[in-house]
């Protein structure tokens, strides 16, 4: 199959996947595109939104539309790391000899829904670190590889902060994108009511297999990024650092730590996925500008002044995008 045919097929499959998701999910197009971009970029996604916006339903619908194994962990304060990665159990064979055997936890899946991840203790949260970064789990002295593709979709509630444990920066950095579920408008609410209070929820047919997901991941990585476009992405990430020459006035005043190199990788990978969604094999400035907010918003740490004044990181990123010159010193409008 030629590259162009693969590209066309990928677009068809992605369109079919979107259609299946939209059978259950009303609106949330950006959220769906973000999750798909994360899936095809081999990343993990953190979904943030108030309860009742359909985050969990979206993840379950995605798992139904993909022929991937799905597991869900409801994070609670008493959840232990062994509850996630598994534990050694003592088994007795027919001859009466006892031995340890590793029983896999729910992390051994392909799509893992970590629901309300900020309700577990940091010790339990960190149990996901190795799985998210290296796609493997070490128990005792034995490493256990996770199945490919592996993707963690974590959700967290931004308003109920009592009894929660905010994710440490190291773990936040592991998420490729942080997506925010916004409140639907009136038309979307009307459709939601119609779909959920009447007939049973429509069934979702699987349209992508694990192999096809892996193939799409290869296709995303084959999207090219020109030198001047890459320079723009670098300038944009550098502009999030207060000590950088490209830093904007707000960044200089309110930012303690800017985005990491992993943030630059996230921006470029997500932009490549967005370019593929658009049927292009090259990254554009617009792709980078669209990928920057979800890829950078959880990687920028405000200083005390920024926290005290309630500075919105989204506004900072918007200023960075606006002020960073795309080419020849001309800032994007």
């Amino acid at each position: 199959m030629s590259d162009e045919a693969r590209l066309t097929l990928a677009r068809d499959r992605l369109d079919a996947l979107r259609r299946q998701i939209q059978r259950r999910i009303v609106g949330h197009h950006d959220l769906v595109d973000g999750i798909l971009a994360c899936l095809l970029s081999s990343g993990h996604v953190l979904l943030e939104g108030v309860p009742g916006l359909g985050k969990t339903l979206l993840v379950k619908t995605l798992s139904d539309a993909l022929q991937l194994e799905f597991a869900r962990i409801q994070f609670t304060p008493d959840l232990m790391p062994a509850d996630i990665i598994g534990t050694q159990v003592v088994l007795q064979d027919d001859e009466g000899r006892r031995h340890f055997q590793f029983r896999q936890g729910p992390v051994f899946t392909q799509l893992l829904l970590a629901d309300e991840i900020n309700r577990a203790t940091p010790k339990t949260q960190s149990a996901l670190l190795e799985a998210m970064e290296e796609k493997r789990v070490t128990v005792g002295r034995t490493g256990h590889a996770l199945a490919e593709p592996f993707m963690v979709l974590a959700t967290q509630n931004p308003i109920e902060m009592e009894g929660t444990y905010p994710l440490p920066e190291a773990q936040l950095d592991r998420f490729l994108l942080k997506l925010t579920a916004t409140f639907p408008d009136a038309d979307a609410l009307s459709q939601i009511v119609d779909r959920t209070t009447g007939a049973p929820m429509p069934a979702v047919e699987p349209v992508l297999s694990a192999a096809e997901v892996l193939e799409l991941r290869e296709l995303v990585r084959s999207v090219v990024i020109a030198g001047h476009v890459k320079d723009y992405a670098i300038r944009m990430v550098l502009a999030t650092h207060a000590g950088s020459a490209q830093a904007t006035p707000m960044v200089r005043r309110y930012v303690r730590h800017g985005a990491s190199p992993r943030g630059l990788q996230a921006v470029v990978l997500a932009a490549k996925a967005l370019a593929l969604f658009a049927g292009r094999i090259n990254v554009s400035f617009d792709d980078l500008a669209a990928a920057a907010p979800p890829a950078l918003r959880h990687r920028i740490l405000l200083n005390f002044e920024g926290e005290a004044e309630g500075i919105d990181v989204e506004g900072l990123i918007a200023e960075v995008i606006r002020e960073t010159p795309s080419v020849h010193g001309k800032a994007r409008a």
């Binding site: 020109a226 030198g227 001047h228 476009v229 658009a278 090259n282 990254v283 554009s284 080419v327 020849h328």
Partner: peptide
């Protein structure tokens, strides 16, 4: 440089400049 500028003016999503670079 001309290709990059033409990309921006024609809204070609950097297709022209990327192709020319490669």
């Amino acid at each position: 440089e001309v290709a990059i500028r033409a990309d921006l003016m024609l809204r070609l999503k950097q297709r022209l400049s990327t192709a020319w670079e490669y």
